[in-house]
Design a protein around this nucleic acid. Structure first.
Lengths: 197, 197, 197, 197
DNA sequence: AATGAATGAGCCTTCATTCAT
DNA sequence: GATGAATGAAGGCTCATTCAT
């Protein structure tokens, strides 16, 4: 019973991700979500308060899983270089393996609707904290010079985000992970790692 | 007559920027654009094919002006350091002085609607080329090591974009320009400028 | 078993009366009836063909009980004065003691839906007949002058109905029974009872 | 322009009266109102906030007109007998000439929705006041014995209301006005008019 | 050219009813 | 019999677009 309920919840979430990826949150009729999820339209309202909540839960559930994975991967490494590489690699490979989620994340992350913004901000802030934590650790270990944490995080997140958006938008997408090394190199330079003396 | 036409065209564009900034492209009724522009609803359709085209023209006209200004500012400088600083400063100060445009740019830039994407891509690609041109010049002058142009541009644009989005989203926004120097420092590091040897 | 069946039938009827009284027949979801009756939604359809039939049975069962009680009370009295007083007193006190039923009766009695109208008409006609019977007896006993039976019944029923509706609608309801004597006096006058000669 | 606007407003009101009379407020789709009014569905929302407001305006506009007519007719007469007869005659003849309005009035007057109740109460209270005014005058002129004003008004209004409902519900409706004299006679008796001493 | 009243397609959501368990 | 999850039809309302003036 409970697994069936959960199964349907997940199916709707997946259907919504694909539906939103297809045409965007506002363009996408609830009927399309239902169709892709293989449930009736009304069923969606047994699991979600409304269409808006479906979008919100996508971020909470799926971005949450992404951040959890990121935290796990980071915990496996010690050095700041490894941490930076982990961030880039995990970000790119996760998005590459979840293209529809990437599309939704990249495109619908930016919502002027304040209710949605607020609900999205949670998982996003958590990710921001992870990135800032890595930088902070580098500074504390005196491997990275004093830097404005927010600006550094904006650079890292922004770079990953722009790369992902480029990849999502491209008609014939290259592999995203091919950008890992160049990106890591840029980050290392920006944070003054690996420099002679 | 022609100036009047142009005047009305511009008024609609400005009205639309503010209207879209208020509530987002999809949430914003055409009537609101007309209201802010001080014209009748029907008048908008004398100047634009439909609502979508209004958004597209905002990018073409206003992003075009931004890119033109950027090109002008870049032409005044010689060194790559100055070019990087010019990009960051111009980007931040322009957005800061055109908050509504910034909101529309940051939030509505990302549209899954392919028609809009395509039309937007023009001005965006031009900006990308400017950024890549600066990096390329640095590489050619051997001030910057060989780097993947696209990745470097993604980092620069993404960082500026993320910073602007942060600023746009913040309830009590700090000044965006205060981030110019930290950001430039990060970019210089990433591109290995100003380093001994 | 049979009593259990009957128990559940009655519980649904009571739940429905309260549910309909809360928000009206059309506003009230079947789920609310189920909730108040303490049964599952589907169970209702084991006892009633559909929602409409629940309303119909309320009238048939509860109005039937009301009419039966009225007939019983009337049988206890002989004079037309006593009969009139019995009608008013029984009507008012019954409604006062069954406020939810009164609400449903007053508000939902009037349904343009012809199927409901038809089904309701049974118990209502029976009540009409009781009232007309009292008047007729008065005429036959030459205590009441020749009168149009229907009009007289309309007056009596309408007056009781209007008083009940007023009471049902009032925010701070007075006691309905306090209106018994004034109303009886009016009826006696209308039917020319208690007049010298 | 203005008359055209007003014309459309009235047409929608008339369409709604007929539509509500057909199937009741809740059963009636807005599309049916539009159809009967000969306008598009959306047009209704240019003149009314929502479906509920259409019902409310029917009472305010049409019941208002009814009450105004009633007041006018009452002003023409002096004696309480004439006033009573005027009330009955005007009520019956107005309803007879506006059958659909009568249906809506009789059936939809009773709405559990508090917002609708409140909006309806205005015109209704005005009518109540007119009736009570007539009784009060009779008492002041010592033609009518002391009576509870509310109860007397409930009797008069209720009787008229019940008669109208009967007529509305009847398959083969008799003329309503044929009930004027019997009803007046009952009222006169109830209020102890025309009796030897 | 300019207007804004009118249009009607489209969508979110509710809820009566069904049916597998 | 009893359940309540699932269904899907239906309807109120919005709003981009048109067109008579």
């Amino acid at each position: 019973m409970d697994t069936q309920r959960e199964g349907k919840f997940e199916r709707i979430l997946d259907g919504a991700i694909n539906a939103f990826a297809e045409s965007g949150f506002h363009q996408c009729p609830v009927s399309r979500i239902a169709q892709l999820a293989g449930v009736a339209e009304g069923t969606i309202y047994l699991y979600f308060k409304n269409k808006e909540e479906v979008l919100i839960r996508i971020f909470q559930e799926r971005m949450g899983a992404f951040t959890a994975k990121m935290r796990l991967e980071l915990a496996r490494e010690e050095t700041i270089e490894a941490h930076l590489r982990t961030i880039v690699r995990t970000h790119f490979s996760y998005m590459e393996q979840n293209r529809s989620l990437a599309i939704v994340t990249q495109l619908e992350l930016r919502q002027s609707n304040p209710r949605i913004r607020l609900a999205i901000s949670g998982p996003l802030l958590e990710y921001y904290h992870l990135i800032e934590g890595v930088i902070k650790q580098g500074i504390e270990h005196e491997e990275v010079p004093q830097t404005d944490l927010r600006v550094a995080r904006q650079m890292i997140f922004g770079a990953l985000d722009a790369a992902t958006t480029d990849w999502v938008m491209a008609r014939n997408p290259w592999t995203l992970v091919s950008g890992v090394e160049p990106m890591v190199t840029l980050f290392e330079g920006a944070l003054r790692l690996n420099r002679p003396n």
